[in-house]
């Protein structure tokens, strides 16, 4: 780095004017110049729509004027409440299950198993696939008549339910798929975490005759806590954001049993052509996301503190 070609900067008179102008700025001004491009686009696609949504959400569906009807409607709109409840349940179950399985997989694939690289890659592979492709793959498994799961169950003489057509089964079925897709991704976080744990700790447990499970519970699990907290936030935001499968598999049905918030926003905005009400729902979701962001910031503060 120190032996870079000694270009004589002051004498160089080239035509790149904006950069030369930037050179003359004081540091503070230069910093704003650096921030400008990113902030223009961040403002355009998060601040502007935020303000736009606030305005739209206080307008009636037809005509002008100010109204709070859209917000009042949130409390009485059955589909919205259903989607909110579904999303809550979906997050509440998929996040801990994904993380728990990810941790188990990481512990299993941290050790020196033959074919470790292959197994790690295999478990991680679903994480790099598009959610829509994952959805198509799982439709094979869930299809009631010729689907893979029911073929096996039928051969064993067991009942063969309509996994995606039964209001009681559709959400759990989608949760299984979500966990399959997500667990490998978080396994990678945990593998990184496990690499950071001093191997002497495991040796000590071994010498003391502490069982593996006990060692995990008393040593690894607490040490992985920062990873868990961070992964939980990512998983939580994914469970709101990555709902493409609803479009492919169920369209929110049957009877809204698999309707999730982002899908409902889409339906209200683009199928019912009701952007004012869609804006009110968006703001509810944003409030949740901002709350999550604030929790994340606090956690990161603490993590930086501990380092």
């Amino acid at each position: 780095m120190t032996d870079a070609p000694a270009v004589a900067p002051p004498t160089e008179r080239s035509s790149w004017n904006p950069l030369r102008a930037a050179r003359k700025l004081p540091d503070a001004g230069f910093a704003y110049f650096l921030l400008l491009p990113a902030f223009i686009f961040l403002a355009l696609f998060t601040v502007k729509p935020l303000i736009g949504s606030i305005i739209a959400s206080t307008q009636p569906r037809r005509g002008d004027g100010f109204t709070l009807d859209n917000y009042a409607r949130l409390a009485t709109d059955d589909v919205f409440l259903k989607a909110l409840g579904n999303n809550f349940l979906f997050s509440l179950i998929t996040v801990p299950v994904s993380l728990g399985l990810a941790m188990l997989l990481a512990v299993l694939l941290h050790q020196n198993v033959r074919g470790r690289g292959f197994l790690r890659a295999g478990v991680f592979a679903p994480a790099i696939l598009p959610m829509v492709a994952v959805a198509v793959i799982w439709m094979y498994f869930y299809q009631p008549n010729i689907g893979v799961i029911n073929s096996i169950l039928g051969a064993l003489g067991l009942p063969t339910p309509d996994w995606l057509g039964d209001p009681g089964l559709v959400l759990p079925s989608l949760m299984v798929m979500m966990v399959w897709k997500e667990a490998g991704f978080f396994m990678l976080f945990y593998l990184a975490g496990l690499q950071g744990i001093d191997p002497e700790l495991e040796e000590a447990s071994r010498l003391e005759g502490t069982g593996k499970f006990r060692h995990f519970w008393k040593v690894s699990f607490p040490l992985l806590m920062p990873t868990t907290l961070f992964a939980a936030i990512v998983a939580l935001s994914d469970s709101i954001k990555m709902v493409d499968f609803v479009f492919v598999m169920t369209q929110g049905g049957p009877d809204n049993a698999s309707n999730l918030l982002l899908f409902y926003i889409y339906k209200v905005a683009f199928a019912q052509h009701w952007p004012q009400f869609a804006a009110a729902i968006s703001l509810v979701v944003v409030a949740v996301l901002v709350a999550l962001a604030l929790i994340q910031i606090r956690l990161m503060d603490r993590k930086i503190h501990y380092r």
Binding site: L42, T46, G52, S53, K241, I265, A269, V285, L289
Partner: peptide, 22 residues
């Protein structure tokens, strides 16, 4: 910087209707 941090969680799709207009 806090303005940036808060947006860690916000994704453009949540404002799909407004962003479509933009």
């Amino acid at each position: 910087f806090v303005f940036v941090l808060i947006q860690l969680m916000i994704f453009p799709e949540v404002f799909m209707s407004e962003n479509y207009r933009t």
